[in-house]
């Protein structure tokens, strides 16, 4: 069963055609990595899936319910998008933690004030999550007191606290010093082992290869290659991806 289905997505910023008729589906328990050079449209695709950008044409559906579809040749979003927002979580490149909230409050506030869940129950859940991530001693810290890696781990557990069915990662390690990326990737790997459905936009090729069920290579607004990581990395067919991997390996 597909959790997310995006079909024939088009998106332009002015004259810049960023997404050209892209289709993508993600099944339950699947880990999909999206790779590609910068400007290829992979982050935009994620932002469209999470409604941070509105698409110009196409269909977006979660759990077989349409959130956006074409009506009379025009894109139409459903009125209450918040019903859909509870289905997914997004981890940003820059964490975007709320600096005036403690770690625990960052996690608890949305479940309590958006989902109207019981405060004590949410607190127990959040503390359990923090313990699992080895962050239990940071519950009362403020984001400014944490390292970049810890902040990104907190932003992951903040997304998890909403119990999403699918979790998106937008270059989760790009803003981190190299020595801090490991702890974040470890967490994502752990989630993959627990069969969390995830879509990861990343530049960490080795990681994408190791953790993904499927890899998508995007360039210039289209999906160039898609398939099992061994197939995509081990038996690259397209010239563009070969070139990309070559450039990448040079670094």
């Amino acid at each position: 069963m597909s959790i997310l289905k995006m079909s024939n997505i088009q998106k332009s910023f002015g004259d810049n055609h960023v997404l050209k008729d892209i289709s993508l589906h993600v099944d339950k328990g699947e880990v999909v990595s999206i790779i590609g050079p910068s400007g290829s449209g992979k982050s935009t695709l994620l932002r469209c899936a999470t409604f941070l950008e509105t698409i110009d044409a196409g269909t977006i559906s979660y759990d077989d319910r349409n959130a956006a579809e074409m009506k009379n040749g025009k894109i139409a979003y459903v009125k209450n998008l918040n019903d859909f927002r509870h289905v997914f979580g997004l981890v940003f490149q820059n964490f975007n933690l709320f600096p005036h909230f403690s770690v625990l409050k960052n996690m608890m506030d949305a479940p309590v004030s958006v989902l109207k869940r019981d405060k004590n129950e949410v607190r127990e859940e959040c503390l359990t999550l923090l313990r699992k991530m080895g962050l239990e001693d940071k519950a009362d810290s403020y984001p400014c007191e944490l390292s970049g890696g810890q902040q990104q781990r907190v932003s992951i557990v903040r997304a998890l606290a909403m119990n999403p069915e699918i979790l998106f990662f937008d270059e989760p390690t790009s803003a981190l010093d190299p020595e801090l990326t490991g702890e974040v990737l470890k967490v994502i790997k752990q989630l993959a082992e627990e069969k969390m459905t995830m879509v990861i936009v990343t530049h960490e090729m080795a990681f994408a290869r190791a953790v993904s069920d499927r890899v998508i290579f995007m360039d210039k607004g289209v999906i160039v290659e898609e398939g099992h990581p061994e197939e995509v990395f081990g038996n690259t067919r397209s010239e563009r991806m070969k070139q990309f991997l070559q450039n990448y390996n040079k670094d």
Partner: peptide, 16 residues
Amino acid sequence: VGQYEAAQVLGYSRAQ
């Protein structure tokens, strides 16, 4: 802008 986006993705209303 990231603060607005984080809140939006978490489902906060505009007033919240």
